[in-house]
Design a protein around this nucleic acid. Sequence first.
RNA 1: GUGGGUAUAGCUCAGUUGGUUAGAGCGCUAGAUUGUGGUUCUAGAGGUCGCCGGUUCAAUUCCGGUUACUCACCCCA
Length: 443
Amino acid sequence: MKPSIPQGTRDFSPEQVNKRNYIFSTLRKVFVKYGYQPIETPTMEKLSTLTGKYGEEGDRLLFKVLNSGDFLKKATALDNAKKLTTQICDKGLRYDLTVPFARYVVMHKNDITFPFKRYQIQPVWRGDRPQRGRYREFYQCDVDVVGTNSLLNEVELTQIYDEGFARLGVNVTIKISNRKILAGIAEVAGISDQFMAMTIAIDKLDKIGIEGVRKEMLGHAISEESVAKVEAILQAKNLDNLKPLLADSEVGTKGCEELSTVFNYLDKVELTNKVIFDITLARGLTYYTGTIFEVSANDAKMGSIGGGGRYDDLTGIFGMKDVPGVGVSFGADRIYDVMEELKLFPDTSADSIQVILLAFDQESHDYAFGALQKLRKAAINAELYPEPVKFKKQMKYANARKAPFIIIVGEQERTSGLLTFKDMQSGEQQKLDIESIITSIKS
RNA sequence: GUGGGUAUAGCUCAGUUGGUUAGAGCGCUAGAUUGUGGUUCUAGAGGUCGCCGGUUCAAUUCCGGUUACUCACCCCA
């Protein structure tokens, strides 16, 4: 049997894990710096927690987990796959980190001091067809704060995006908009009931052009007149132009005000990356109600590598009213792909092996074992080739491991106490006692 | 969920207008060099040509189906 892994999943080599950990630890430092605390939630959630939170498409992409035991006992809808699913599955794999977080907040409300700032770095699963930059299992790095309406949080999250990507060396554009503006556009155009269809169409503007957007909206039975209104509003290049167009909409005006506030704050902070208002920004997830964020890499062809937004009442569905929240997510796997493409990873060899000991015979091997203890005691990453096998094989191993140094122990060395210390890059070698070697490696 | 592409050695791929023994590079093993890797040279191991069926004297090659992978759409990190 030829072994394989499920579609859209991947194995990671030592080098890849080191690089991934570099992303995680870099972001973690930023999150902690801004006062966020870590939590983790289970891989599986109750299906009742997950369904209905991500829109129709989201429900379709949820991985469901078959009940244990005789799951057919409760099954009656044998001719209806959708209904049957609800009868034989009551768990599902986590689809994002925001909904589980909302559930967490409600369950632990008595232990939490609000506002509660948390970060969470864990994998999520989506049953999408895999393609470039899209996986069925991928990591998100989320930062959210709940229990505060202050738009200062939006500013802080923008800074976290900015600093996070700056530290990783990825040039990005941080796009910001507000769902209330989209709601305002729908209201002014008289299509509030078609809000989602309009939003999804607008989201594609830069991809399919204004004509494509028009076609898509007309396809959703939106009237020619409404489409024309939407089009006219989309011409507004900036907030100042937009405000008068949405003057008749209370919610739209509110959206403009919120956005202005955020940008006014942002004017006062130092940023590395470009932060822009993008009216075409929409975000598919249904639970966003205010500010929305999206991040794209400037120098690589990749979809969004981060996204987020404000949700006024995500905890409401779990029975806890009036706990607004806002958060953003870093898409670690896409960031990895971008960094790989642009060769932005620093050399991670400092975290790996520093010296490997090789021995010619059993007695020398025993002697080398003693030296190995001294090296490790001095906090040097060291290993001894486990058997004194053919020397060429050991050398090849040391070379393949990319060890910067090796120590060779044979009869001469163990009798003199002076070990052969070789720099693998230059090929130079000298005879030194173990203390001198330790000093030499550490310098 | 919809549409396209691909499937040959461990990896990346060539090739066979249907015909005897299916190739290269890299990797692997051994030797040149019994105390020295990364360079070089020599030799060797490794393939039911994805799977099932059809056409044919003959199929890895042509046709149909199937599975897997992959790219794009939808949607999204």
